[in-house]
Amino acid sequence: MTHLPLDQQLLDTCAALLLLLSFAMLSQRRIVTLVNLYALQGAVLAAATLLLAWRTGEDHLYLSAALTLALKVALLPWLLHRLIRRLDVYWDTEPLLNVTGTMLAGLVIVVFAFALAQPITRLASTATRSAVGIAVSVVLLAFLMMITRRKAMSQVIGFLSMENGVFFGAMSASYGMPMVVELGVALDVLVAVLVLGVFFFQIRERFESLDLHHLESLKEHD
C-alpha cells in the first residue's frame, strides 16, 4: 500500500463516511433519524471542506466550511425538526421498494458512479480527485431515496442530501464553486425548505396526511 500523507488519508476517510451516511439514509425509515443523519453528513462535509482549505490554503473554502456548518448542521436540521414536531410525522411508511432491494440498487449505482467518475479523475489535478466518484454516488443515492419514499418529508431530505453530493463533487473536482454560486445555492436550499414547509401544511390541510399517493388523485383523467 502506498503511503499517503495524513491529510489525504483524512479527506478520504471523510469521503468514505459521506458514502456510508448516504447508505444509512437510504435504509432509514425514522424521519427524525434521517434528519440527524443529514446533519451528520453536513458536519462531515464541513470537516472535509475545512481540511481541504487548510491543505490548499484557498481562503474561500474556509468561508464555505463555515457556511456549510451554519446551514446544513444547524439551521436546516433545526427547521426540519421543528416541521416534524408540528406536522407530527415521525415515521415514513413502508418504502415502495423494500430496504434490501434498495440497498442492492444502491450498490449497482455506486459501481456505475465510479465508472463514470474515472475520466474526470484522470483529468482533474486536485488532491481530492479520487472522491469525485463518491460525490456522484451520493447524488445518485439521494435521488434513489427520493424515488423510493412515500412521505414528502423524506423526499425533501433526499433533495437536500443530493445538494450535499453536488457540493462535495464541486469541491473535490475543482476546489469548490465560485463563491457567488455557492452563496446562491445555499440561499436556494434555504428558501426551498421554507417553501416546501408551507407546501406540507397545505398538503396536510387538503388530504389530512403527508402521504404523497394522495397526490395521484390530481392526475387528469381521460
Binding site: 465508472a115 463514470l116 445518485l140 435521488f143 427520493m146 424515488i147 419514499r149 397526490l215 395521484e216
Partner: peptide, 25 residues
C-alpha cells in the same frame, strides 16, 4: 406517461440522467 405518482416522475428523471451519463461514458 402521466401517472400522477411523484415516484414515477422522479424515476423518469433518474433513468434519463443515468442513460445520458452512460452515453457520455
Amino acid at each position: 406517461v402521466q401517472q400522477g405518482r411523484i415516484s414515477v416522475y422522479l424515476l423518469y428523471s433518474f433513468v434519463t440522467l443515468l442513460v445520458l451519463l452512460a452515453v457520455a461514458l
